[in-house]
Simulated scan of single mutants.
Amino acid sequence: MHLLVALDDSEPGWAALEFACSEHSDDTLTAVHAVDPTNSGYGEVAHLGPDVLLERQREAARELLAEAEDRAADDGCALETETIVGQPSVAIVDYATTNDVDRIIVGSHGRTGVSRVLLGSVAERVARRAPVPVTIVR
């Protein structure tokens, strides 16, 4: 079975990786981090330019995924990694569709009520759009 772990640098994201390694260590695990070129801090694009900003995001992704590989190895788990580009929920579902993924594991930020309705969440959008089962880890 091929499992996709959608990883960001958050406590729920790391919990998703830990869950995948503990429950599915014999399966093929791929951790992906989505780099969103439209997501920038105030004025960053104007100041740095889109190419420099995207490269900084890619470098941060490389560091995050290297840490994921180290954590997985500490848990005795083999992990492939991939940086994907695009709006996270769309990029995650697209990756799962084109790479024969059997299940997606994603961390939940635990939003409830009005904040969930107004802000939405990557986990919720992935769960609604994914062509495969999705496990949301708290």
Rank of each mutant, 00 (worst) to 15 (best):
His109Ile: 12
Pro131Met: 13
Cys77Glu: 01
Arg116Ala: 14
Ala127Phe: 09
Ser108Glu: 11
Arg111His: 15
Ala123Ile: 00
Glu124Ile: 04
Gly86Asn: 02
Ser89Tyr: 15
Cys77Phe: 01
Arg116Cys: 02
Asp75Cys: 06
Ala127Asp: 09
Val93Gly: 07
Ala72Ile: 07
Ile104Asp: 08
Arg128Ser: 11
Gln87Thr: 14
Pro88Tyr: 00
Glu82Met: 06
Ala91Ser: 05
Gly76Thr: 06
Val122Trp: 06
Gly86Lys: 02
His109Arg: 15
Pro133Asn: 10
Gly110Arg: 12
Ile105Phe: 05
Arg111Met: 14
Glu124Phe: 07
Ile105Ser: 03
Val93Arg: 02
Thr97His: 13
Ile92Gln: 01
Arg129Ile: 04
Tyr95Gly: 02
Asp74Ser: 10
Val126His: 09
Gly120Asn: 06
Ile92Thr: 06
Arg71Leu: 07
Ile84Cys: 03
Asn99Tyr: 02
Gly113Ile: 04
Ile104Met: 07
Ala127Arg: 08
Glu69Ala: 14
Ala68Gly: 10
Asp75Pro: 00
Ala123Val: 05
Val101Glu: 00
Ser121Lys: 00
Asp100Phe: 00
Ala72His: 02
Gly120Glu: 07
Ser89Ala: 14
Ser121His: 08
Arg103His: 14
Val132Phe: 04
Gly76Ile: 04
Cys77Lys: 07
Thr135Pro: 05
Arg116His: 10
Cys77Asp: 04
Ser115Asp: 10
Tyr95Thr: 03
Pro133Phe: 07
Leu118His: 02
Ser108Arg: 09
Gly120Ile: 06
Gly76Asn: 02
Ile92Tyr: 02
Ala123Asp: 05
Arg128Thr: 14
Thr97Gln: 13
Val106Lys: 05
Ile104Ser: 02
Ala78Arg: 11
Arg71Ala: 11
Val106Glu: 10
Val90Gln: 14
Gly76Phe: 06
Ala78Gly: 13
Arg116Asp: 06
Ile92His: 04
Leu79Thr: 01
Val134Cys: 07
Ala78Gln: 11
Arg71Tyr: 11
Gly107Arg: 09
Ala68Phe: 00
Glu69Val: 13
Thr135Lys: 13
Arg71Trp: 12
Asp100Met: 07
Ser121Met: 06
Val101Pro: 01
Val117Gly: 07
Ala130Pro: 01
Thr135Asn: 12
Ala130Asp: 07
Val132His: 05
Arg125Ser: 10
Val117Leu: 15
Val117Phe: 13
